[in-house]
Simulated assay, not measured.
Amino acid sequence: MRVLILTSKPREPDNHLLWEGLQQLADVDLHYVTKEEQRHLGAVLKRFDLESYDRVVLDLLFRHVSRHARLLSAIAGLVLYEEDACQEFIRSSRWFGKFSAFYRKVPQARVIFTGYRVSERFRALGVDACFLPKGYDSSKLYDTQRSRDIELGFIGRLASDAYEERRTFLENATAKFGVQTLRTSPGDEYREMLNRIRVFVSADIGLGEYMAKNFEAMACGCLLVAHRQGGGEEEALGLVDGENVLLYDDFAGFSAILSRLREDPSLGPRVSAAGKAHVSRFMDYWAQASHFYGLIAADCRPVVSKDWKAAVFCALFLRRK
């Protein structure tokens, strides 16, 4: 299978291992596209003979991709890799309802979502939806076996409107239990900070899926205490409460978990070790490559025929220079 991949540069989280793993399974033509180039995606697409590829995979920013539905609707074998589509269902997000509006314009596209329930909701809307969990870069994020001096910590954004419930929860957790909310630069600084945290407090409340930082924290040896998403999400991810993660449903449940950890000192190390082993097996980008290949190898929907003006426009614009 011949595959063209266009992916963002820079990209956080860095998923280069996913594409490098895929190169072991298919004939992959990998290109990194800057944010400025994504603003002019049509010009980028003109560089390639798109008909010579079995699949065209776009791992690009939705705000740019969504502006080019007319062009993308003419591409056979189009695959979209999307990590942020949960915002389709978050009323406070600027992207509320925008993803489904775009997907209706590219009905032939296969979309790989990183949330199980999100993928199911889009499938119910008629999207060719697949599920692949969010992954992590094992070449940069790992357990350094250092002494951990931050008992309860969180690293990440709080300012976005989409994270309103996260922000409220963590503010309360900080006031009552001293949870430290931190920000770092990507790369070494992020890895070292995760390795200082004993219990990573995740609050993906109202998002409908687990963010990548959950698995990054587990990979670095943190005990993950996370808000339960429900609806089959944990089962799809292989997360088992009390075995490889500790889950809460509300603030009272979170408080109860902290009490359990104080009463049973063996619980935290046992669960964190199992969590680290689990993500290493299933969420490492390199390990996910074979699953990704299986998702794109299945037959795609055909391009929907257009009126002759649109067909001529796309044929002229997308043909190779």
Score class of each variant (00 low, 15 high):
91 R>D: 13
87 Q>T: 15
90 I>R: 06
108 Q>D: 09
50 L>H: 10
60 L>V: 09
112 I>F: 06
79 V>T: 12
112 I>K: 02
83 E>W: 02
140 K>S: 15
148 R>M: 11
90 I>P: 05
74 A>T: 07
125 L>A: 13
138 S>M: 00
130 C>D: 13
69 A>V: 07
137 D>P: 00
146 R>K: 14
110 R>A: 03
52 S>I: 06
62 F>G: 05
71 L>M: 11
92 S>K: 14
58 L>W: 01
93 S>E: 04
66 S>A: 13
75 I>C: 08
99 F>T: 00
65 V>I: 15
48 F>W: 11
90 I>M: 14
144 T>S: 14
138 S>N: 14
97 G>L: 13
48 F>P: 09
115 G>K: 06
65 V>N: 08
75 I>D: 01
69 A>D: 15
104 R>V: 05
126 G>K: 08
63 R>K: 14
119 S>Y: 05
59 D>P: 06
88 E>H: 09
89 F>L: 06
60 L>Q: 00
87 Q>V: 12
130 C>A: 15
76 A>C: 10
77 G>Q: 04
129 A>Q: 10
93 S>F: 04
73 S>N: 08
75 I>N: 03
70 R>W: 00
111 V>Q: 04
49 D>T: 07
81 Y>G: 00
126 G>A: 10
142 Y>H: 13
68 H>E: 15
118 V>L: 04
81 Y>H: 13
133 P>N: 09
51 E>R: 15
126 G>F: 10
151 E>F: 04
101 A>I: 06
86 C>H: 15
93 S>D: 10
96 F>H: 15
53 Y>L: 07
70 R>F: 02
76 A>V: 01
89 F>S: 03
112 I>C: 06
57 V>D: 00
127 V>I: 14
91 R>F: 10
100 S>R: 10
52 S>L: 04
96 F>D: 08
82 E>R: 03
139 S>N: 11
118 V>M: 03
108 Q>T: 10
58 L>C: 04
97 G>Q: 15
142 Y>P: 08
63 R>S: 14
148 R>P: 05
113 F>N: 02
134 K>R: 04
139 S>M: 08
146 R>P: 02
64 H>L: 03
74 A>E: 09
96 F>L: 00
88 E>S: 03
134 K>S: 07
106 V>I: 15
142 Y>D: 04
124 A>C: 05
147 S>C: 04
94 R>P: 01
144 T>E: 13
140 K>N: 08
53 Y>P: 02
125 L>G: 10
70 R>V: 10
63 R>N: 14
82 E>W: 06
96 F>P: 00
121 R>G: 00
150 I>E: 01
127 V>S: 01
131 F>R: 05
135 G>N: 07
52 S>G: 11
106 V>L: 09
48 F>Y: 15
151 E>P: 11
113 F>I: 12
79 V>H: 01
94 R>W: 06
93 S>T: 02
120 E>D: 10
133 P>I: 10
71 L>G: 04
55 R>V: 03
145 Q>A: 13
80 L>T: 05
85 A>F: 04
121 R>V: 01
152 L>V: 07
147 S>V: 15
68 H>G: 05
127 V>E: 01
128 D>H: 13
95 W>V: 00
154 F>V: 09
134 K>T: 07
97 G>M: 08
83 E>I: 10
75 I>E: 03
149 D>N: 12
129 A>T: 11
68 H>R: 13
130 C>G: 06
59 D>M: 00
103 Y>V: 06
136 Y>G: 07
119 S>T: 06
138 S>Q: 14
112 I>Q: 03
50 L>D: 09
131 F>I: 07
